[in-house]
């Protein structure tokens, strides 16, 4: 036993040192990383609701809104109430994060009007689709199609849309387009249900 301890002491000492180093790194960067995430979500939420984001010379975003996380019974759903900066004035809208799978994990942020009747914007939070094909879901033209009434579930079509609730799929990127549409439908449906039940209580 003593012989074995002689052999493994190095592993134990290194584990201790590196464990401490990792814990320290985690502690010292945790807040910053969370802030980075939050900042990104806030930027996209402003884009999806207000529709524009001005940056100063240093590239710092000039925010007009702030986010308040909604406490929902559905814990899998992440949604924010979008309020004007300082919390004064009427609600700007809602921001919901939709999750799904295209070719890889996809995260989108959907902006909704204050009465939840309209989708005000769609932003891609995280995507690793194929560049040149699926990655075109990031393009303005495709995302602009989603700015429409949220009363009826959206439908993906492969030709020019004839009805208002239809969205045209990207050529050569049907799977990614389908994934985004499905995510939007699910997330909007869920958030509407959750907010309405919250309001009743």
């Amino acid at each position: 036993m003593l012989n074995m301890l002689k052999q493994i002491w190095l592993v134990l000492v290194l584990s201790l040192i590196f464990g401490a180093a990792l814990a320290y790194t985690d502690q010292s960067t945790k807040q910053r990383i969370a802030e980075n995430r939050q900042q990104q979500i806030r930027e996209l939420a402003q884009m999806a609701t207000v529709g524009e984001l001005v940056r100063d010379e240093k590239g710092q975003a000039q925010f007009k809104i702030e986010l308040k996380k909604l406490e929902l019974s559905d814990k899998t759903l992440v949604a924010y109430e979008v309020l004007p900066i300082g919390g004064k004035g009427p609600r700007v809208g809602y921001a919901v994060i939709g999750e799904g799978i295209g070719w890889d994990r996809l995260l989108v942020l959907i902006g909704l009007s204050p009465d939840l009747s309209k989708i005000t914007g769609l932003e891609i939070l995280e995507s690793r689709e194929t560049p040149g094909l699926g990655e075109r879901i990031k393009g303005d033209e495709f995302r602009a199609q989603y700015r429409k009434s949220a009363q009826k579930p959206l439908e993906l079509v492969k030709s020019t849309p004839t009805e208002d609730h239809q969205v045209m799929a990207l050529t050569g990127a049907t799977i990614s387009s389908e994934a985004v549409t499905a995510m939007v439908n699910t997330a909007v449906g869920k958030v509407r249900k959750a907010i309405q039940s919250n309001n009743k209580n």
Binding site: L12, L16, D26, Q27
Partner: peptide
Amino acid sequence: SVLVGGPVILVGLGLLLAVGLS
């Protein structure tokens, strides 16, 4: 806390693996 827990878990894991390998 993470500051204590991290090293403790790593040392535990290291002990387990090192003894296993030995």
